[in-house]
Design a binder for these strands. Structure first.
Lengths: 323, 323
DNA sequence: CATGAGATCTAGAGCGCTCTAGATCCGCCA
DNA sequence: TGGCGGATCTAGAGCGCTCTAGATCTCATG
C-alpha cells in the first residue's frame, strides 16, 4: 500500500480511500492511484481492513454437506441477495454427524464474520444458543428458540405428502424417518397426524441419512408381512434409496409402489423416474436467511426473527393409485 | 485478550502463547488462562493473528459449482489432507460461465491465503498465470503451463471409454463435447483418435453444460439420419440428459442405446440406470492438490509440479452391445 | 552460598489497514 | 485584496494479535 502511495505521490490514507471509492478523492487522483495499484499488483488486504475498521462486514455460511444439492440451493439463495448488498461470504462445511459443527462455527467466528447463516447444524439447541449470544446466527430449516431462523413448515409439508397418498387411495403407508436428532421431527408428526386423521394407524421406521440405509429398510418392509403400498421418505436422498430397491425388483414406481420424497433437490430428477416430492424451497430459504442476516447486522436489538415458508407438493411420477 | 490476561494475572503475550499451545508456558498457567478465556467467551481472532504473524497459513479453495458432485468430492479430498495438517480452508464458489472467477480469486487473495487450490476455473491461461505469479495456485483437473496442477489423463479416459464401446461392437459413435473453453479438449481428442484408430470417422457434437442441452442434442441425433448406437458424453451430467431422452422414448439404456459418461459423480447412480462412466478420481485429485499446495507453501522455489492421475473405466449398466 | 542454564514470563514494536482530526488548496464573493 | 467554505489531502493513533529481545524466576551444581 505504501508502495502504491509513493508511486502515485499521495498518502497511504488516500490510497485507502481511493480503493473504497469513498468520496473525498478527486476523480483524477483516484484513477492515478488505481492505475499504479494495478501496475504493482496491489490487492487490498481485507483482513487488515476489517481489523482496522472493527468491521464485521462479511457473513459466514455453514453448510452441512456439499453432496446434498439442497445446500447448494441454499447457498445460491444466500449469494443472490448478498451479492446485491456487496457483502463477502465466508463458507465453512460440516458433516453428516455434526462432529465438525463447533469447529466450523469457531472457524467462521475467527474469520470476523458479523453473522453466521447456518444450514444443517446438528448442534444441540443450548450450545447453538450459547454461540449465537456471541455471534448472531440465522438458523436455516431448523427453528431454535431465541435464535433467528427461517424454516419451511415441515409438519404441513408432511401432511401435504401424506394426504396426497391417502387421496390416491393408499391405506398402507410407511414413513421412513431420519434420526431424531436434527429437528425434523415435525415431518414425522405431520405424517402421523395425517394418517391418524384418516382413521388409520401410522407406521414409522427410523433410518440413517444415507441412501443405502433407506434401501435396506425398504427391502425389509417389502419382504415383511403387510408390505406398504406407499412410502414417504424424510428426504429425497432416502427416497432414491427406496426407488433403488423398487426398480431393482422390477416394481414400477407410481404403479407397484408409490414413493414421495422431501426437499425437491435435483437428484430427484433421474432418467425415467421423476420423484414426487415436497418442495423445501431451499433457494428461497437462503434468500430469506440472507435478508434476516442483513437486518440483524443493521439492527442488533430487534427481537428474534422467525420466518416460516409454506412448502409445496410437487407431483411427478412416483406416486399413483395403489395396484 | 487483554481481559483474559488480566483475569489470569498474566501478560497478553502469554495468553497468545497459551492459546497456540506453544511451548514455554507452564502447564498450570496454561490451564488457568484457558479457563479464564472460556469463562469470558474469548475466541482468538484468526485474522489479527494471521496479520500479525505475516502468516499465510490458510489455503483458499475455489470450486466452480456446488451443484456438481465432482466438486464436493474434490473438496472432500482436500479437506481430508488439510485437516491432518491443521490448516484452515477458505472456500469460494464460482459459476458455470466463469464470470465470477476473478472475483473469487480476489476474494481468496484478500483473505490472506497462502495458496489457492482452484477447481473449475474458466479463466484464460494467461490471466491465471498472472494471478499465480502473485499467489501460488494449484489447478485441479486442468493443466496450465507454469502453474502447479493435478489432472487425470483425459485423453486416456476418453480412449478407455471409446475402446469399450468399440469392443462392444459399436460402429456409429457420437461424442457430446463441452464448449471448447475449459481445457477438456483432451477428451474429444482421445475419442477421435480411438475412433479413427478403428478405421471409422469420428462424429462430435458440441453442447453446453446443462443436462437439457445434452438431451436436446440427443433428440436431434436420434431423429437424424444414421442415428448413433452409442453416445459418449463429456461428463455425467450430460450423460443423464442423454438417458432422459432415451428412457423417455422407451429405449432401454445399454440395449437400445449405449451411453457412457465421464466423472463418476454420484448422480450417475440413478434408480434402474447405473451409468457406465470414466472415473475422474475427483477425491484423489483433491488429495493430491492439497499435498501439492502444502509442498508449495513450504518450498516456494521448487519447480512447477504437474501430476497426472490415471482415469479408470467404470463399467455399469448403460453400455452394451448394439441391438 | 554464589552461579548460571533452562524454564517461564513480559514489554513494546509492528502486521496492513481505517479513522479522526486537522492541514492545505482553490474559487468566489464582498 | 482578504476571507471563507467546501473539496481534497495528510499525519498519526490504534484494531487484536505475534514476535523479538530481554527480564525474572527456578534449582541443581561447584
Amino acid at each position: 500500500m505504501l508502495d502504491v502511495a509513493r508511486a502515485a505521490g499521495v498518502s497511504r490514507a488516500l490510497v485507502s480511500l481511493a480503493y473504497r471509492d469513498a468520496h473525498g478523492v478527486s476523480p483524477r487522483t483516484r484513477e492515478r492511484i488505481l492505475a499504479r495499484g494495478e501496475e504493482l499488483g496491489y490487492v487490498p488486504d481485507r483482513m487488515a481492513a476489517s481489523l482496522a475498521s472493527r468491521g464485521v462486514g462479511s457473513v459466514g455460511v455453514h453448510l452441512q454437506d456439499l453432496h446434498n444439492d439442497v445446500f447448494a440451493l441454499i447457498h445460491d439463495g444466500i449469494r443472490a441477495v448478498m451479492e446485491h448488498s456487496g457483502r463477502d461470504l465466508v463458507l465453512s462445511v460440516g458433516d453428516l454427524e455434526g462432529a465438525r459443527d463447533l469447529a466450523s462455527l469457531r472457524a467462521l467466528q475467527g474469520a470476523r464474520v458479523g453473522t453466521v447463516i447456518a444450514a444443517g447444524l446438528l448442534l444441540p439447541d443450548a450450545e447453538l444458543r450459547a454461540f449465537a449470544a456471541r455471534t448472531p446466527v440465522v438458523s436455516v430449516a431448523r427453528a431454535v428458540e431465541g435464535v433467528d431462523s427461517v424454516c419451511t413448515d415441515n409438519a404441513l409439508g408432511a401432511r401435504l405428502a401424506t394426504e396426497h397418498l391417502l387421496a390416491l387411495g393408499h391405506r398402507r403407508l410407511v414413513f421412513l424417518a431420519n434420526p431424531p436428532s436434527d429437528g425434523y421431527l415435525d415431518r414425522r408428526r405431520g405424517f402421523e397426524a395425517a394418517v391418524a386423521g384418516a382413521g388409520l394407524s401410522p407406521r414409522t421406521v427410523g433410518i440413517g441419512y444415507d441412501r443405502d440405509g433407506a434401501a435396506a429398510a425398504t427391502a425389509r418392509l417389502l419382504d415383511g408381512e403387510d408390505p406398504p403400498t406407499a412410502v414417504f421418505a424424510h428426504n429425497d436422498r432416502a427416497a432414491l434409496g427406496v426407488l433403488d430397491v423398487a426398480v431393482d425388483r422390477g416394481l414400477v414406481p407410481g404403479r407397484d409402489l408409490s414413493v414421495v420424497g422431501y426437499d425437491n433437490s435435483s437428484p430427484g430428477r433421474a432418467p425415467g423416474t421423476a420423484l414426487t416430492t415436497v418442495d423445501l424451497r431451499a433457494e428461497e430459504l437462503g434468500r430469506v436467511a440472507a435478508r434476516i442476516a442483513g437486518d440483524r447486522m443493521e439492527h442488533p436489538e430487534v427481537p428474534v426473527m422467525q420466518e416460516v415458508l409454506e412448502p409445496r407438493l410437487v407431483v411427478r411420477g412416483t406416486a399413483g393409485p395403489p395396484a
